[in-house]
Computed example of a mutant assay.
Amino acid sequence: MPVSKHSSITLPAVSHVSAGFVAVLVGFASAVVIVIQAAQVTGANSTEIGSWILALGLGMGLTSIGLSLYYREPVLTAWSTPGAALLVTGLGGIGLSDATGAFLFSGLLIVLVGVSGVFERLMHHVPGSLASAMLAGILLQFGLQAFTAMHQDFSLVALMLLTYLVGKRLRPRYVIPLVLIVGLLYIAFSGQLHGHSVHLALARPVFTWPSFSLPVLISVGVPLFIVTMTSQNIPGLAVLRANGYQTPISPLLTVTGLATLILAPFGGFALNLSAITAAICLGEEAGAERNTRYLATVAGGFFYILIGLFGATIAALFAALPQAYVFALAGLALLGTIGNSLHGALNDAKDREAALVTFLVTASGLTLLGIGGAFWGLVARSGDSLRESLRG
């Protein structure tokens, strides 16, 4: 239950602010390039990409601050990084208006799940191996691009890979920001940064009228919903529970789903619970007293808003960077997720073959009836499950 409105207000300490800043920096640096790629696939221009970052920054900031203050527990929200990766692979040839319709559809499904309270029962019907295999298939090309980018700039990508390998052993929590910084320094000193168009500027919202295409809703909206729920909200809930916080899950889903519905026309494609970066705000480094660690996620919310307001500058900066850098950064940022997904998909021997089929179908980029590979990966797994049931 939320605390009384008359409860005393506690000011954040340095540990709260630093934990919130690190959580936002790690999450943002790890995935903003994938979000930008997703927007570019739809044909979005630099102003529209800035609107995406603005909408996501404001959405994550306001929901993190609001939910944390209401429940007095550390609730950090995030955009769906696996969802953004899905959009890169699934939105080819799909316009921004149809994509916006898919975002709204996914957000509506999350709201319905939150309001109805059927989250646990619904997720019970989505086998973990299925979700892991589908996610691994979606992310495969990103992992491959981290290495094929060496054809474009061997020295840059090799340096980033070496930094990743060393940083993973010494400072695993900060490895992606470290890779980002080392890559930027190399680009700057080698004269590859074409930043004449980069200047400090506030982002402005750009509204896109949604259109609804059944093939797009099925091939993008449904997988986006499933990936967001299974790869973000379930781990996010697990992180809260593992740290002893019993924040009710249904209201959190409802709020993030409603935020997606409101912000989708401006580029807020999917908001959800944070998992990995949330752990930074839930541990002892965020404060010795557990009952004040919510101030770390409040601080993180303010940093989210600040980044969102300058989304236009961030979009212009990444547009000025070499393509090899963007591909390598995205791939390295997702290596851990790819490995965990493959492990989850293939760990159970009895489901291994079915999960492998799902992985291969999803990774193949198969398109039938205008519907993309992620959906057919689900169908392949469902068909295999039905076959096993009939055998039984």
Rank of each mutant, 00 (worst) to 15 (best):
M1N: 13
I9S: 11
S15P: 07
F21L: 12
F21T: 06
G27D: 13
G27R: 09
V32E: 08
V33R: 11
V35K: 03
E48N: 08
W52R: 01
I53E: 08
L56A: 00
L56N: 09
G57C: 05
T63K: 02
S64I: 00
I65M: 13
L67G: 01
S68P: 12
S68D: 00
Y71I: 01
R72M: 07
T77L: 10
A78T: 01
S80H: 01
P82M: 00
L86W: 12
G93N: 11
D98C: 12
A99T: 15
A99N: 11
T100E: 12
T100P: 15
T100K: 14
G107H: 00
V113Q: 05
V113S: 02
G114M: 00
S116F: 03
L122W: 12
M123L: 14
M123G: 03
H124F: 06
S129G: 05
A131D: 01
A133K: 02
A133N: 00
M134D: 04
L135V: 10
A136P: 00
G137S: 13
L139F: 03
Q141I: 09
Q145I: 07
M150T: 14
L156P: 13
L159T: 13
Y164S: 06
R169I: 15
Y174M: 13
I176W: 08
L178W: 15
I181V: 09
L184F: 13
L184D: 05
G191I: 02
G195F: 02
V198G: 09
H199M: 14
L202Q: 05
R204E: 08
P205A: 04
T208H: 15
P210D: 03
P215M: 00
V216T: 06
V216M: 08
G221E: 14
P223L: 01
F225G: 00
V227T: 03
P235T: 03
A242Y: 00
G244R: 01
P251F: 03
L252A: 14
L253Y: 05
A259P: 04
L263S: 14
A264I: 06
F266S: 07
F266H: 06
A270W: 11
N272H: 15
S274R: 04
G287L: 01
R290T: 10
N291C: 05
A296R: 05
A299L: 03
G300W: 10
F303H: 07
G308Q: 07
L309N: 01
F310T: 11
L321K: 01
V326N: 06
A328K: 06
L329R: 07
A333S: 14
G339V: 04
S341M: 06
A345Y: 07
K350H: 13
R352P: 14
A355W: 12
F359Q: 09
I371S: 12
A380N: 10
R387E: 08
S389I: 08
S389G: 02
R391I: 07
